[in-house]
Computed example of a mutant assay.
Amino acid sequence: MSVLAPYVATLVSYDAVGEPGVHVGMPSTRLTLVLPVGEPIDVGWADDAASRRRYQANVSGLHAAPAAIHHGRRQRGVYLELSVAGARALLGVPASGVAGEMVEAAEVDAGLRDLPDRLAEAPRRDWGPLVETTLVAALARHDAPGPRAEVGRALARLTGGAGVADVADEVGFSRRHLRDLVVAETGLTPQQHRRLGRFERSHALVRRRVPLAEVAVRCGYADQSHLTREWRALAGCSPTTWQRRELPSIQDDGASGAAP
Rank of each mutant, 00 (worst) to 15 (best):
L158R: 09
G21N: 15
V12G: 11
R229N: 13
E132K: 03
Q243C: 07
V84R: 13
R125H: 06
G163T: 07
V182H: 08
V3T: 06
G236N: 12
G97F: 06
R141W: 08
P248Q: 07
G146A: 12
H142R: 06
R198P: 09
T228Y: 06
L247V: 03
A144W: 07
G97K: 04
A222P: 15
W45N: 10
A255S: 15
R113A: 09
G86V: 07
P36H: 01
V108S: 08
Y79T: 07
V151E: 14
D48E: 15
F199D: 02
V206D: 04
R245P: 06
D166L: 03
G100K: 05
V217W: 10
A68K: 07
L130M: 09
V171N: 07
T240K: 04
P20V: 03
H203K: 04
G236H: 13
C219I: 10
A87D: 14
Y55Q: 07
G111L: 13
D109T: 08
G61R: 00
D48L: 14
G111P: 02
H23M: 08
Y14D: 00
L119A: 10
D117R: 02
D15H: 05
L115I: 09
A110R: 08
G77K: 00
W231E: 09
S238G: 04
P190Q: 13
P27I: 00
E121G: 05
H203F: 11
A156D: 10
A255Q: 09
G152E: 12
R179P: 01
L62E: 12
R201N: 11
L227R: 08
A213I: 12
G86M: 08
A9V: 15
L33K: 04
R179H: 04
P6R: 13
E246V: 09
D117Y: 00
W231V: 08
A64E: 04
L139T: 01
Q224E: 11
A255D: 08
R244P: 01
H177Q: 11
G92I: 11
P190L: 03
G197P: 12
D180P: 01
G172R: 13
V78H: 00
A16D: 10
V206P: 01
L130W: 02
E214T: 14
V17D: 05
V78R: 05
R208S: 15
A50L: 13
A16E: 03
L62N: 07
R198F: 13
T159W: 11
I69Y: 02
